[in-house]
């Protein structure tokens, strides 16, 4: 393999082309004057204008954003607790149950997660009257349940690499366990928490299936609205939306990269 690096590199190039061709085509056609993807009818930004006037899409985006922020915040709190318990507490009762329930959502098909959550909410409503109906709350709960698993995994892998004598040293110097967590552990795993928050945010913003199961009337998320419009065929407005999303994500990653590089430079 090493003798012919060109083979590996051409395969690498092919992989990236495969990953990016569809995204590039979306962006290009979002500026197409014509409604048809087939024909290039000249440059236009009219689809962006009409996207900004599409009350339904904008409303759904607002719903999705609120759910995503709530979800990410809750998921970081719960996922951090779960990850800490799994790494730092040795063996305790319920550990294997926790480990299983943290791992399973990572590979569980969405349809099962969605169906399971919905059935729970229906049964709970019957039994205790809460949650009354379904909407943003139920979607958020279902999202937290699976995205906290991702956070827990990220926190776990960071904690495993963290020298436990750092926490012991803090305790040795007189800090109590909770204080140790807030003064030593938390600052050291902060980058992992930020990554977990962003991941949970994205997972929630991206989810169609679970939201469809657990949503009720009046709480349509962005993917749900996009899905129903996509089923009807290609729509240039969706292209515009996709381009904006790609732009935002790229911007976010570039900013994160610059910040990280600055930090690295400062540390030198």
């Amino acid at each position: 393999m090493m003798r012919r690096p060109s083979l590996v590199f051409s395969l690498l190039a092919f992989g990236y082309a495969f990953l990016y061709a569809p995204i590039v085509s979306l962006i290009v056609y979002s500026f197409n004057e014509s409604r048809l993807v087939t024909v290039w009818a000249g440059f236009s930004t009219k689809w962006y204008t009409s996207l900004l006037q599409n009350e339904q899409l904008l409303g759904a985006a607002w719903v999705s954003l609120r759910i995503a922020v709530m979800n990410a915040t809750l998921a970081v709190v719960l996922g951090t607790l779960a990850g800490t318990a799994l790494v730092r507490f040795g063996r305790f009762r319920g550990r294997s149950a926790l480990a299983l329930m943290v791992g399973a959502p990572l590979v569980m098909p969405d349809v099962i997660l969605g169906l399971a959550s919905l059935l729970l909410f229906v049964a709970m409503e019957q039994l205790i009257g809460w949650p009354a109906g379904r909407g943003m709350t139920t979607i958020t709960i279902a999202h937290v349940t699976f995205s906290m698993a991702y956070v827990a995994v990220i926190v776990q892998s960071r904690l495993v690499r963290l020298d436990p004598s750092l926490e012991e040293a803090a305790m040795d110097l007189g800090a109590r366990p909770w204080k140790v967590f807030f003064v030593i552990t938390l600052p050291l795993i902060a980058p992992a928490l930020a990554a977990g928050w962003l991941l949970a945010f994205t997972l929630s913003l991206d989810d169609l299936v679970i939201a469809s199961f657990t949503s009720g009337p009046g709480a349509s998320t962005l993917p749900m609205v996009v899905y129903s419009s996509v089923r009807l065929g290609v729509s240039p407005e969706i292209n515009a939306l996709a381009s904006i999303m790609v732009g935002l994500v790229t911007l976010g990653i570039v900013i994160a990269g610059v910040i990280m590089q600055r930090r690295a430079a400062d540390a030198r």
């Binding site: 020298d163 803090a170 305790m171 110097l173 109590r176």
Partner: peptide
Amino acid sequence: VPPYSRPVNMMFQSYALFPHLSVADNIAFG
């Protein structure tokens, strides 16, 4: 008695210096 209440301090094999704190803050921690 838990470690944080003992009149004992330890120097760790890995030194366990808090990487996010300066030298002065590390020393001042206790």
